[in-house]
Amino acid sequence: MADTTTTITAAAIPDPAQESHGVWGFTRAQLAALGLLIAFLAVAPFLLYPVFLMKLLCFALFACAFNLLIGYVGLLSFGHAAYFGMGGYLAGHAAKAWGLTPEISILLGAVTAGLLGAVAGSLAIRRQGIYFAMITLALAQMVYFFCVQAPFTGGEDGIQAIPRGKLFGAIPLDQDMAMYWVVAAIFLGGFLLVHRIIHSPYGQVLKSIRENEPRATSLGYRTDDYKLMAFILSATLAGVAGATKSIVFGIATLTDVHWSMSGEVVLMTLVGGLGTVFGPVVGAAVIVTMQNYLAEMGAWVTVIQGVIFVLCVLAFRRGLVGEIGNALKVKL
């Protein structure tokens, strides 16, 4: 039982013949899906509540960042809340206490998350598989305890009344619509960046590490360096997502660094489809919508999330987008 050959994302990978690269590494099907996504981003704020959409986009970016690790390097981080939450705290503190503009605050949050990712990642990549997951979880719990005690995070109260401020010191973001376009731009930028990373030569090496790390090593790649870089990129993007969220909602709390948040991003990615380009976005949309409608059900939300976890693992390992892609015989 010691060696299993099925990698975690094997179910989500259609045959390599489909890896034909069109524009920017997008296949034709992906371009169509991207067109749909952009059209949705443009139309949605006129049909749906913009604040809800902004929450959705923040989590979608968070899930894309997480998917970069699990889907393309095969590393399951169970502590991504640490980077998401710390990004949020730093951005909130920078905007409120230091009075910095939102874009600088988000940048600071991202850099902090990236540095934290560099430290945690360099420790975690020393072990593989389940140990990697346990180490990232333990380190994230350490960050959680730090946030409970550190003076600037406000402990149980969190940082409240974070001002949205003026973008570049000129454009006020107090209007939800103005804020929405900024969030949409950040999301799309992050989404395209993840896609660009995956389809770069660097991304190909990452995938080879996922498929067979000893072989990648024997071909002369320093796999640890590649894994660490991917971890830092993923943590940084998670930080961007958390920072944006705290600017949008004006609040950064312990919820965002708690282990249950790490579990939620795993769930979003799993529901959408591990290792698919659009899966994390769809998964985040499903889970955030579900939480929105079931908010008054209290602890039953946890139970439902647990049930979805179990169903996905047992019967539905490709996820929504993976299943659609499989049915249409395209890679999404």
């Binding site: 099925t6 975690i8 598989g129 389940i130 647990g306 976890f309 179990v310 693992v313 047992l314």
Partner: peptide, 12 residues
Amino acid sequence: LDHLYGLLLTFG
């Protein structure tokens, strides 16, 4: 399957 699925299932 991969060990990680066991981890995800028991987490659920």
